[in-house]
Amino acid sequence: MKTKLLHTRWTFNERFQHWALAISFIVLVITGFQLKYPDAWWAKLLVGGDILFDLRSLLHRISGTIMLIMSFYHIYYMIATKRGRQLSKYLLPEKKDMQDLIKNIAYNFGLRSQPPEFGHFSYIEKVEYFALIWGTVIMAVTGLMLWFQELTLLLFSTWVIDLLTVIHLYEAWLATLAIVVWHFYYVIFNPDIYPIDTSMITGKITEEAFRDEHYLEWLKIQEEAGEDA
């Protein structure tokens, strides 16, 4: 029973969305910081001359466009498909999330004996999802305004360009650090997960992990199975 039973956590469509976003995100991070930090050793490996610089700009804009298309597709997916609507419901923040956060901190600091029990999405995943939405909106708006600066300048003065540049830069830092510190911890560096959480590759999670990490949902499925039987 232990690790043989597998549950579907992510459909192929969702995994495709994740990796399209992940790849465009990584390319955006590299080509973006390459512009801001041209003297960094890794940037020097990639920057070099006029043509490569233009290629960098092009890659950044292509990746930004992919991310934007995926974002719009995601909105459609979350509203117009049955599975998407189900996930939207799971993602809604509730009072329990705040309680879970407090319980989890208390548990981690040894003030509680039991960890909180999570449903389909834990508060950790919800925080990440909404942070991603926040980051994408900020980056897309500032990015597009900088890309089409002639249009931006129809409405705003040049110093707004400076402002947008600053926001775009620091939001990029926030997003990158959040991915490394938050996301990479839960899918890579978590001692129970290390070296990698394969669920976004296979779409499956083990019975054991399902029970441990999403106990409430597991319980519900057990009950439903019991009723069916």
Binding site: N104, I105, Y107, N108, F109, G110, L174, L177, A178, V181, W182, Y185, Y186, F189, N190, P191, D192
Partner: peptide, 15 residues
């Protein structure tokens, strides 16, 4: 980032 580090650091130590 500091809050994230503390939150996850505690998680890491416990696990």
């Amino acid at each position: 980032i500091l809050i994230m580090l503390l939150h996850n650091g505690a998680d890491f130590v416990r696990r």
